[in-house]
């Protein structure tokens, strides 16, 4: 076996990420925060896609509900992150449990479409809330507060997001190494064999769904704290499509692929919109090209070069 360079690559990336707020200006820090938040959401979606093995177009429900719940609680006077965030995560988990119990009764295309319907449902619901600004959305007066870290400083928020993202990466890596994670992946490989062994595939799919939803919900919490402005477009199929695009740009089934894909996406979005108002066409064409011309996302291709045959890093 050749030397595995994926760990050094990971460490280098992480070090750069930690150094960023001390070398970059506030514009860069904000952009990077956005990248990391979408990276976390993409990672959550990819957990479901790659390990549970099903495609959901509905995970934006959890992004939106995480974001909106945070905003509403904050505006209701609860400011402490230590209080608000656990409540929101619990709320998202319960919502995911209910949605998952319904949606996972079906499979394949039906599952894809029912999750799509859920996210559209939430979109229309949010859009019709006049109190929340309808289509225009509304702004959130302030970020949540933490005891020792002043989140109103964008650098601190960035560092917190970075640490949480690394935590999520670590959590996924750990879950994958446990019997629970093995059962989830076994169910993706062959649900029939899993049930012939005495394990109920439904339970593992459902818990995988809830787990991935909570990750996306955490991204939603951070989204509110970063932008302080929410619109119903946080739910709905466009953003679902974009998040999946981030996943496959970087590469599904690896821990860094979705994160780097999200970073690339946000960067492109930002750069293209400076060049032309029609940047969406560019992104669309890029997406078509990625699907048609490349077998895998750029990080996965690179990771294979760096570390021998195994695509999973």
């Amino acid at each position: 076996m050749t030397r595995d360079l994926r760990w050094p690559a990971f460490v280098l990336l992480a070090a750069t990420a930690f150094a960023l707020p001390f070398i970059g200006d506030s514009y860069i820090v904000q952009l990077a925060t956005r990248m990391l938040i979408f990276g976390m959401a993409a990672l959550g979606i990819d957990f479901f896609l790659a390990y549970v093995g099903q495609l959901s177009l509905g995970h934006t429900i959890f992004l939106a509900s995480g974001a909106y719940l945070t905003a509403l609680l904050t505006m209701a006077g609860l400011e402490s992150a230590l209080l608000v965030w656990p409540i929101v995560l619990l709320g998202v988990a319960l919502l995911a449990l209910a949605a998952g119990m319904l949606a996972l009764r079906t499979g394949g295309l039906y599952f894809i479409m029912i999750t799509l319907a859920f996210t559209q449902m939430l979109f229309f619901f949010l859009q019709s809330q006049r109190g929340l600004g309808g289509d225009e959305g509304f702004s959130v007066p302030q970020r949540n507060t933490l005891p020792l870290l002043d989140l109103s400083d964008p650098r601190n928020l960035y560092l917190l997001v970075l640490v949480l993202l690394l935590g999520v990466i670590g959590l996924i890596a750990w879950i994958r190494a446990t019997p629970f994670g093995a059962a989830i992946e076994a169910c993706r490989d062959n649900a029939q064999r899993l049930s012939a062994m005495g394990l109920d595939p439904y339970g593992y799919r459902l818990s995988g769904f809830v787990f991935s939803a909570v990750i996306v919900g955490l991204a939603g919490i951070l989204y509110t704290n970063n932008t302080l402005y929410l619109t119903p477009a946080l739910s709905g199929w466009y953003l679902s499509g974009e998040l999946l695009m981030m996943v496959i740009l970087g590469g599904s089934g690896s821990l860094l692929g979705p994160v780097l894909g999200a970073a690339l996406f946000v960067l492109l979005q930002e750069q293209l919109s400076h060049i032309t108002p029609h940047w969406m066409a560019g992104l669309g064409a890029l997406l078509v090209a990625r699907v048609m011309l490349m077998k895998d996302g750029f990080w996965n291709v690179l990771a294979r070069r760096l570390g021998g045959d195994d695509s999973h890093s």
């Binding site: 446990t178 019997p179 062994m197």
Partner: peptide, 22 residues
């Protein structure tokens, strides 16, 4: 080996366990 360890764990009726597989 991983398939078999999972099958052996499954004898307990569930795999909601968070120790390390290894």
């Amino acid at each position: 080996e991983k398939s078999l360890v999972l099958a052996l764990l499954a004898r307990q009726g569930h795999c909601y366990r968070l120790g390390r597989m290894a």
